[in-house]
């Protein structure tokens, strides 16, 4: 079930003051950024999310090597890599979904608009409203189409002009034309592709800034997949999208930036998608994307 179900009325996360300024980066983290092959092109773009020496452990096991990366505003950033490389772990660390795993522990910083989301003053529920998430398998609530979208808005008390907000979210999720005459029907009667777009509508209804997607099209047929891909490109006009995908061609098609994690939870390269897929810096990345290993 979506984490939206745990939403409460906690206000924004903009209360934390301990985060370092961007000028306060340590030499070690700069060195790590170089290792990750950060593109010069990212300089000058507004950064929404920044990882600084971010590591994740499950018990004693390190699932993520220290990650240093800056994810730009209103672009699609794809995360690719072989199974078990840490890409979903990194994605879930952005809106603290790993908090739900008892043995998970995070080191380093994950800044959202310069605020460390792991700071004590940050409310994870409010954070997840600003950084929504869409999962691999569509997970609509067993309610009507309308109520699925309205759910988070009601909880937040944003129920003025609810019809308008629901319609707006469904339109932004490219679903309105298909469901406008049956909003009262159960969401569970929709096709898989429609259910996934409904989940996207539900995620964007509270007007988040970032949308995280964990293999959102892997359970869908090619037509539904292309609809989701079109939608992701549309969404990137208004939102920052970070998407984990096993489908490298999908990453190449829809993303502006690509992060490549390889075995051991190491971010090996990050940069413009066109460069990663035409001329990666790192030989291991080249070997991975050309199918020579992995």
């Amino acid at each position: 079930m979506s984490d939206d179900t745990s939403m409460n009325e906690t206000p924004t996360i903009e209360t934390h003051t301990e985060a370092k300024s961007t000028d306060d980066r340590s030499p070690a983290s700069e060195a790590d950024a170089d290792v990750a092959g950060m593109d010069d092109q990212s300089i000058g773009e507004e950064t929404v999310i920044e990882a600084r020496d971010l590591s994740v452990f499950y018990g004693d096991e390190r699932a993520l090597q220290p990650v240093n990366v800056e994810i730009p505003d209103r672009q699609v950033t794809a995360i690719i890599g072989p199974s078990g490389c840490g890409k979903s772990t990194f994605l879930r660390s952005i809106n603290r979904m790993n908090d739900m795993i008892d043995v998970a522990r995070v080191d380093g910083e994950l800044l959202f608009r310069d605020t460390n989301v792991y700071g004590e003053a940050v409310d994870p529920v409010a954070l997840r409203r600003a950084i929504g998430m869409v999962f691999q398998k569509p997970n609509p609530f067993p309610k009507s189409i309308y109520d699925n979208v309205a759910y988070g808005l009601r909880i937040q008390g944003k129920d003025d002009d609810l019809d308008e907000q629901v319609e707006s979210a469904l339109r932004r999720a490219a679903l309105w034309d298909e469901v406008s005459d049956r909003l009262g029907e159960s969401a569970l009667d929709m096709s898989g592709g429609q259910q996934q777009r409904l989940c996207i509508a539900r995620a964007i209804a509270p007007d988040p800034e970032v949308i995280l997607m964990d293999e959102p099209a892997s359970a869908l047929d090619p037509v539904a997949t292309s609809q989701i891909e079109d939608l992701i490109e549309e969404l990137a006009r208004d939102y920052t999208v970070v998407i984990v995908t096993h489908n490298m061609q999908q990453a190449a098609r829809i993303s502006d930036k690509t992060m490549v994690f390889l075995t051991g939870g190491e971010l090996v390269e990050f940069g413009d998608t066109s460069r990663i897929f035409e001329n990666p810096d790192n030989q291991r990345v080249e070997d991975y994307i050309t199918g020579k290993f992995g």
Binding site: M248, Q249, A252, F277, E278, N279, P280, E286, I289, T290
Partner: peptide, 9 residues
């Protein structure tokens, strides 16, 4: 085969 990188070049 959707070649990329060195293979594509």
């Amino acid at each position: 085969q959707q070649p990329v990188a060195g293979d594509l070049r």
